[in-house]
Amino acid sequence: MSMDPNTSGISTEELVVEAREAQRDLKPSKLQNLGDHFKREWQLYVMLVPTIVWLLVFLYKPMYGLQIAFKDYSIFRGVAASPWVGLEHFQTLFGNDQFLRALKNTIIISFYGLIFGFPMPIIIALMFNEILKQWFKKSAQTIVYLPHFVSSVIIAGIVITAFSPSAGIVNTFLGWFGIDPIYFLTKPEWFRPIFVGTGIWQEAGFQSIVYLAAIAGVSPTLYESAVVDGASRWQMMWKITIPSILPTIIIMLIIRIGNMLEVSFEMIILLYQPATYSTADVVNTFIYRQGIQGGQYDLAAAAGLFNAVVAFVLVMTANTISKRYSRTSLW
């Protein structure tokens, strides 16, 4: 443990230990203490109840249904009465080239999203932080938050129009340079850039709020002393702002990695065509087509379960790495 040169003699740890011991002496009994605690803080617990109920109802209860991934599920017979089939659905999935392709696409699209999409809100937040004129800052923020509140259906409509070969703004622009119109939305090679780009455009502004909040929490004294030391704005950003919000960045990164396979599939459904399935079909759209539309819930549950297991492994790995190297972690 490194000692902080600025504090005298007693370290924080020692203080905490002392305080605990002092408390223990005061404690009449654990139970009574718990009672007192509830009496004092009951409002907080009441506020917690809805969240716990929500968790139980929407996240824990449905787990009972996960067993259909191992069953020959009939909607009408119900979960309990359907016969077990072991790992048959997983075998079907991994024997299906289209599932493997969807898995590959999911990983690639998520990876693109991570590489290009993750830094963007941080950059936006840092840029906002440098803006001095309040009116400009406010209006710019509103403008970049706005797409987040627009429905995916409308965003998809905008994208389809913007990339249309005859009237789209993109092809009109390319036309000025003598490039023939490209029918972007039927070209497999263009799907991922368009999809990832749309996602960034839609969400980056809104996601920057978290970082702006973190930046607002940085102590002004740090900047003041930096100014006294003659630091430039650029140096302040690199030496003060970014290190200060690093824990936030890492937590967001871990969460992001955990959600990596959850590609926003409603947007994909709105934008893809059979012609672009080869790059656009992700696990969730595959589940949707085969499972929900085709009524094969058991197969869809198997694919979903697999997705969840991969996400769990990813988030655990990211957390462990982060804990080891940066001492910031979710738990």
Binding site: T92, N96, Q98, P274, A275, Y277, Q290, G294
Partner: peptide, 22 residues
């Protein structure tokens, strides 16, 4: 259920690709 959804997906994929000239 085991075969046809994938077959139809494949047929439509190829169909659009051919129409588009790929």
């Amino acid at each position: 259920d085991k075969y046809y959804p994938s077959i139809e997906t494949y047929m439509l994929e190829r169909q659009q690709a051919w129409i588009l000239g790929s």
